[in-house]
Design a protein around this nucleic acid. Sequence first.
DNA 1: TAATTGAGGCCCGTCTTTAGT
DNA 2: CACTAAAGACGGGCCTCAATT
Lengths: 347, 347
Amino acid sequence: MKIAPNANAARGPVTMHDVAARAGVSRATVSKYFNDREGLKADTLARIEQACRELEYVPDPHAVSLVRGRSRMVGVILPVVNEPFFAEALRAIEAKAKSLGMDVIIQCSYNDPAEEAAALMTMRSMKVAGVILTAVASTENRALLLRLEQEMRIVYLDSYVHEDCNYVMNDNRQSMAMLTRYLLGRGHVPAFLGAPPVAHPSPQERLAGYTDAMAEAGLAPHLVPASTQPSWDFEAFAFQHVLDWLAGGAWKRAGITALACGTDRLAIGAMSACRRFGLAPGKDLAIVGHDDLPISAYLYPPLTTFRQDVAAIGVAAMECLQAQLDGTDVTPFRKRFTGGLVPRESA
Amino acid sequence: MKIAPNANAARGPVTMHDVAARAGVSRATVSKYFNDREGLKADTLARIEQACRELEYVPDPHAVSLVRGRSRMVGVILPVVNEPFFAEALRAIEAKAKSLGMDVIIQCSYNDPAEEAAALMTMRSMKVAGVILTAVASTENRALLLRLEQEMRIVYLDSYVHEDCNYVMNDNRQSMAMLTRYLLGRGHVPAFLGAPPVAHPSPQERLAGYTDAMAEAGLAPHLVPASTQPSWDFEAFAFQHVLDWLAGGAWKRAGITALACGTDRLAIGAMSACRRFGLAPGKDLAIVGHDDLPISAYLYPPLTTFRQDVAAIGVAAMECLQAQLDGTDVTPFRKRFTGGLVPRESA
DNA sequence: TAATTGAGGCCCGTCTTTAGT
DNA sequence: CACTAAAGACGGGCCTCAATT
C-alpha cells in the first residue's frame, strides 16, 4: 500500500488521509472506524485510534454532509431570541442538541414572513437534520411550509400551521383557564390583557382559556382594549393600554377586581400602570401573569403566575427531530405540556 | 457541449449541473456567476440567472465550504443564552450576520472550561469564518485559545484573555464609577454588590469602578459579603446576601445609605431583600443597577441604572470578524463601548 | 490578441466493489 | 469461503488552464 504524503500536511488541517498514513491503513478503513466499527480488527482499531489522538483528527463535517446529503445541524428559527421564553427554549434546545452530537444554527424571523421564508430556504440548503420553527403569525408561508415538510423534518415550537404537523407547546388554554379560575375562586372578577399579535396561536389560546373560565362562572369576558400593532415591547404595550383602560372607568362599572395578563412581561407593565393610576397592584387590583420569569418572584408585589415548562418544550422538540432522523418514523409528534400555578402576593 | 441529464434531477436537490444544463453552459460558468461575474457576457448571465430562478437553485454550502476550506458560518460561544445580556448580544450578532450573508451557530459553555474547549474544537472543525467568544472565567483554556487564535479569527465579547486579542465590551469600570459618583453626588454613601463569578472581567471591572469613585470621594469601599459559588440565579443570590447583610447591621454602623449592584438582576433581588427586611428600596436605601433591562423602567420603584449598548457590542463583534475575513487585516480590534446613566426613582 | 467559456483535477469524506490472506 | 482491508467512484462545488471565437 502506497500512501503519498498529503500535500496539505504542513499547512492545512489534518485529514483522514493523514490519519490513514499514520496508522498504516487506507482512508476507507479510517472511515469505517468513524462509522461502523464492526469488522475491524482490534489491532487496526487501536492503531487508528492512536493516530487520531496524536493528530487531533476530527472529520470535516462539510465533507461528511456533502457526501451524506444531510448535516448534523439543527436549524432553529424563532421570532426573536432576546425574549425570555425563546431564550430559554433555545438554551434547552442547544443543550439537548449537544448531548445528541448535533449543532444548532439559529435564525430570527422577527415575525416577518419574508425573513421566515428566507431562513427556511437557508436551512434547506444547509441540509439540516431538522428544523425547529416558531412560525410567524401570518399564514403567508403556509404553502411553502407544506412543501418543505415533504423533504425535511419540521417541528413547530409554540406554534403550528395545520393539524397534522409536529408541534410542541404549552397547553395555553388550560393554563390561562387555571389562572382565571384561581382568581374567580378568590372572589375576583378578572379582566384580560392579551399579548400583541406577534405570535400564534398562544395568545389566542390564552384568551380562549380566559373566556372558558369566565363562561363557566357565568360571566361575560372583559378585555382590555389594545392595539393590534405588532410589538415586542410588552411592558410598554401593557403600561399604555392598562393606563388608558383604567382611566376609561368601564372596568369599575363592570365590577372588575383583577387583571389576568397573557405574559409576565405584560403583568409588569400592568402593575406599573396601576401604580401610575394610583392603585396598589395586588391590593386594589389583583394581577396575574403567565410564564414565571426568573424575576417574577422578586417583583413588588411578587407576581402570581403560571410556570410553563419551557425547557421540557425545547427538549421535546429536539427529541421529536431525533426520533425520525435515522428511522423512517413519520408518526406526527404532537405534544402539549402543562405546568403549574405559582400563587404569590399579586393576587 | 454534451451535458448528460443529472441522475439526481428527479430525486435529489438541484445542483449546479442542472443549472448549467438548463442554461446551456458549463458548470464552470455557473460557478463564475456566483463568484466573480466579471467576464461573463450579459447574455450568458441572463440565461444562468433565469435557470437559477426557475430551478430555485442555491449552491450547496457544504460543497463550497469543503473546497474553500472556510464556511460562511460564525461560531458564537456564550456562557448561557437565556440571560438578558447574552440574549440581546446574540440577537444583534444574528441580525448583523444575516446582513453579511453569514449564518450563526451557537454553543453555550455554561462557564465550564471543558465545554468551552469542546465548543471551540467544534468551531474549528466547522471551519467557521470566525468565532465570537465570551470566555469562561477560568484561565484553563488560555493555551488552547492562543493556539487557535493563530488559525482562526476570535473576537472576545465582554471578555478577553490577553492584551493583544480582539475584544468588544462595555467600559465597565467607567460605567460603574459613573453610577457610584451619581449616588455620591446625591449625598449617599453606597455599598457594592457584585455578580457571582460566572464572568470575567466585567464584574471585576465594575467593582474597580465602584472602588475608584469611592476613593475619589475619600471613602473606603464597602462590599456586601457574598458567596463565590458560581450561579446564574442572580436574583436569589442578591436576595440572600443582601438580606444577610442588612441583618448583620454593619451597613448601619458604616453609614451606608445606598447599594450599587453589578447588574439589574442583582438590584431586583436586592430590592426584594430590602422589603423583606422592612426597608423601602429607593427611600430607606437607594439602589442602582447596571444594564437597563426592558423591565427595569417598570419596576417598583423604577430602577436607576446604566444602559450599556449591547446591540452595538454585538454588531461590533461581527464587524471585527468581517474586517479580517477577506483581507489579511490582522490589526487587533479592541473596542470599549460606553452607554448612559438612566436616572429613575430607585436612587 | 482579447474576451469568454469549457474541461478536468481537487477538496475530504462515504460507500460499494474488489482483492488479499 | 470467511474476514479484513484497499481501490476507486462519487457528492457538489471552485479553480487553473486550455480551447474557441
